[in-house]
């Protein structure tokens, strides 16, 4: 475990209201890992992920992504960082005014890829999430599971070094949940680090890899090949 990708060093986060969201958290995630973060609502899972994206900054301690300290990033470096981190959310967060194809192409456009690369890559990831025939649909014309698959396609098309998924199956039924987890596993097998938060026992059991359990802003368990224990 020498190849550290994400590193939390004694990170404490106190929100403006005085709530302690994270309390002196140490966490090291290596390249190629599949890490599930579990815990009750309010345990600090989402705060943790937001820090990887540099949406939030630690009150104390430091967060390193690819060895970059998130607190010392210029605006430009911040944009660069976000292009290396793919993100998936519980509520999908697709761009409603763009088609499936355009949503995925947008991630490549902002990364400055050429039109030829975009025309080659978008159908490829659409195939990966099995949505080739829905390319010209708008998000609201799709089911929840399909929307999440579009979000996954958008996240992985930029070939991120890490894929961060905040409750990706929170709004999905068991069948769609299973499909999404299978896709995430496939992406991990292809070499991308995956960090996901969940409170779905089924998800953890079917992944069968490292599980970090959080409670009250602290990491209470860290199992290398874990089960859901709360």
């Amino acid at each position: 475990m020498s190849d550290s990708l994400i590193k939390f060093e004694k990170v404490t986060k106190i929100h403006n209201g005085g709530t302690v969201a994270l309390d002196s958290v140490d966490l090291d995630i290596s390249n190629g890992e599949f890490v599930s973060i579990v815990g009750h609502s309010g345990a600090g899972k989402s705060t943790l992920l937001k820090m990887v994206l540099a949406e939030l900054y630690p009150t104390q301690g430091a967060v390193y992504v690819d060895k970059d300290d998130t607190r010392h990033l210029s605006k430009k470096e911040l944009v660069q960082l976000r292009r290396r981190v793919g993100t998936i959310f519980q509520n999908f967060r697709l761009i409603e005014s763009k088609t499936v194809y355009e949503n995925i192409a947008f991630a490549l456009e902002v990364a400055g890829m050429s039109d030829e690369e975009i025309e080659a890559d978008v159908p490829h990831v659409l195939g990966l999430v099995d949505l080739q025939d829905k390319a010209e649909y708008f998000p609201k014309e799709l089911s929840g599971g399909e929307q999440q698959r579009v979000a996954i396609a958008r996240a992985i098309v930029i070939q991120p070094s890490v894929l961060v998924a905040d409750e990706p199956t929170g709004n999905l039924d068991p069948i769609n949940t299973y499909e999404v987890v299978q896709i995430l596993k496939k992406i991990n097998d292809l070499g991308t680090t995956v960090v996901l938060t969940t409170h779905n026992k089924g998800v953890i059991d079917s992944v069968g890899s490292r599980v970090v359990t959080m409670d009250g802003g602290k990491i209470v368990r860290d199992d290398k090949s874990g089960q859901y224990m709360l």
Binding site: R93, F106, V110, I158
Partner: peptide, 18 residues
């Protein structure tokens, strides 16, 4: 009405002028 969209674009890594 596009407020959320703007936020998503930022998270995907779009620069401001984009």
């Amino acid at each position: 009405t596009n407020k959320d969209e703007i936020e998503v674009m930022q998270l995907v890594g779009a620069s401001n002028w984009f």
